[in-house]
Nucleic acid binder design. Structure first.
Lengths: 139, 139
DNA sequence: ATTGTTGTAACTATGATAGTTACGTAGGTG
DNA sequence: CACCTACGTAACTATCATAGTTACAACAAT
């Protein structure tokens, strides 16, 4: 994974979960916390809404979680904001005249896929609630 | 990880390990198997040599492994060709006026670091020999 | 009607990566 | 010794992904 979308997605959901005034949590406000542009935030919240992790209050104001923080895994957040993520990349178009070249992609594919699955399993067992508790413990 | 250096590094070492004529394994030849440029190969072999995974024969001809394939882990290869790799990226410069912004980097840092370590553990337990056996089983 | 906010398209800037050209260097061979 | 082959590396380029940015239509609430 090269991007920061999971990390920003978790940031957003943590803000939603910990806000005192969630009905006034708009993209402008969130962008100030992340220190980015409101459109970047809207792109992410838009994905999070499509994944049924958050929804707006009446009138598209603010944000609220659609599940309890202990029921939102980091994997769900990742899939919402970066559905095609891969931890590893394999070089393509190796020479099929060569035994190694012909088979390396499939061999590495299954090895890397195993590790990907293990990582996803780890993320599936980490919940937004865990992040929130850690954040709160620091302040 | 966004790059293909681990994948190419494994490809190179597999070629070295499986070659019938390792003294004539030059960057040109390897590049043909990977389907890339010889300089890309030389950059990688140069790193692999510095990490003491391979060395040239007398006269800088060809390549030979410096350890048995069962003693070369994929983690060593990764560290050799991409020493600063990180699976996850965290957005920087969050707003320290905000509780979440102030602490998110350290919270996510330790979570992601755990997963990074687990992945490295997995890679440490996968050996070049495992890759070779899988490659050979296909052909 | 006016206001505030979202969703999204379209474009830009930046940075990482692999590919490429070029060349100095080292070692072996005739 | 002169020649040859291959390596190591600097420097540059092309490509691509990402985040940032501008702009605007749509929508709901008042």
């Amino acid at each position: 994974m090269i991007n920061t979308r999971l990390s920003m997605g978790i940031h957003i959901l943590s803000l939603v979960a910990l806000s005192n005034d969630p009905e006034n949590l708009n993209s402008e406000w969130i962008a100030t916390s992340i220190n980015t542009n409101p459109v970047v935030v809207r792109r992410l919240t838009s994905s999070l809404k499509k994944a049924n992790l958050v929804k707006a209050y009446v009138g598209n104001r603010g944000l609220q979680l659609m599940k309890e923080p202990e029921d939102i895994s980091l994997l769900e957040i990742l899939k919402a904001v970066d559905p095609n993520n891969h931890l590893f990349h394999i070089h393509q178009n190796s020479n099929i005249q060569c035994t190694v070249g012909r088979n390396i992609e499939s061999t590495l594919g299954s090895i890397f896929n195993d590790i990907q699955k293990e990582t996803e399993w780890k993320l599936a067992n980490l919940k937004l609630d865990d992040v929130m508790r850690d954040l709160e413990s620091k302040n």
